[in-house]
Write a protein that binds this DNA or RNA. Structure first.
Lengths: 214, 214
DNA sequence: TATTACATACCGACTAAATGTATGTATATA
DNA sequence: TATATACATACATTTAGTCGGTATGTAATA
């Protein structure tokens, strides 16, 4: 295939296809050739020109997925929100990001894709937690949050999100609701009242919808 | 090499070598041939006779590591302990198991070994949590524990143990201590006073030891 | 006890698949 | 026009897994 005037386009295409395949079939089950096949016309040489290895594609993907729609960029400029409110918004945005790809993620058991799981955990720790930390600190300063455990909470919250993923920890609607109650109580006790009444109602409702789907 | 009269010996040997290598170099970085090389005289044929695939070796290992020294077997018969006390003992036994291999586990960043990480998470959920659940329920019945969240706690505790692994979540002694305080407070609030004064003292001491090592 | 039949522990060569490398070619840009 | 680079192509290498074969153990039979 002819050389592309805008190589970034090729690069993006590679990441797009890779993301789709990794989520559909898993990282190990996806070969470079599989990716190439979805790249109409290009060859493996092109891929290896842009990326040193399959792992490097994965790393790039993890960064991209986070940066593409970084909840914290959206939240940061909002002078009208205090720390707690920003935190709530960031969590919800982040959650809906997850859900957008969860349709595909759910289709394949994530525990069978250790590389993806590890990727999530690592990017949580490196990217998500520091941002959470900032917001919690901000809340501590403006008085909307009052916790001794900013660092600990910022690390733990992503882990709790993991706990809420039914593909890892299977749970029916009732069990999901109990988990949420648990987390609600936990966060309140630790001084980070993340869920307000409206959020709890929304969550409750979304579960009853799931219930009816079964 | 001559056929072994007791094939279990060969099987054990394979698992031994595999465990060593997986922890030293990681799962993906260990080839079947690497395992064979540590098996004085045997060939890859032997390994493939006992195991269908590399993954099957991993699965067998996970089971073995748990069953070999299952904390719950030790605890179960102890009529002199109530549920809470059994829970404490199981946690400590389990923890010291971890520490025994942690010398090797720590040496290699576990996030670079997604397969092992996923294995830990899955075996926690399938083996550890159900046992925790039983003990917590027992405690709830005999009055030594009083929580609405037996199921949730039994799932969350292994996740908290993950959080405490410095190879995944780097932390100095001070930070480790804060994590423990956090968990202590969390569990107390949820009705599962897992750490008594003695344990807290022990933990505190073990951290000051670490501190001095640096 | 000797023989036979069968099961299974293990060997070793082969296949297939996939990653990665080295080199070549054409095109864009300076 | 020269140079960098986007991409192609051929090749080398690594590794998982398969398969037919061999030797040794075990159990039944006589």
């Amino acid at each position: 295939m002819a050389r592309n005037k805008y190589p970034e386009v090729t690069l993006e295409k590679i990441l797009d296809v890779a993301q789709r395949l990794f989520l559909e079939k898993g990282f190990d089950q996806t070969t470079i050739q599989d990716i190439v096949d979805g790249l109409d016309g290009l060859t493996r040489g092109a891929v290896y020109h842009h990326f040193k290895s399959k792992d490097e594609i994965m790393d790039a993907l993890i960064n991209k997925m986070f940066l593409d729609n970084n909840p914290f960029d959206t939240v940061k400029g909002r002078k009208d929100l205090n720390g707690l409110q920003k935190m709530r918004m960031a969590i919800m945005l982040n959650q809906s990001n997850h859900e957008n790809m969860d349709m595909s993620v759910q289709s394949i058991p994530i525990l069978k894709n250790p590389r993806i799981l590890a990727g999530i955990i690592e990017s949580n720790r490196q990217l998500l937690s520091p941002s959470f930390f900032e917001l919690i600190e901000e809340g501590n300063k403006d008085g909307s949050i009052d916790t001794k455990y900013a660092k600990e909470l910022s690390e733990l919250i992503p882990l709790l999100e993991l706990w809420l993923m039914p593909s890892i920890y299977p749970a029916d609607a009732e069990e999901m609701y109990r988990k949420f109650s648990f987390i609600h109580e936990l966060l309140n006790h630790m001084g980070l009242p993340l869920f307000d009444e409206e959020m709890i109602r929304m969550i409750k409702q979304s579960f009853s919808v799931i219930e009816k789907m079964d």
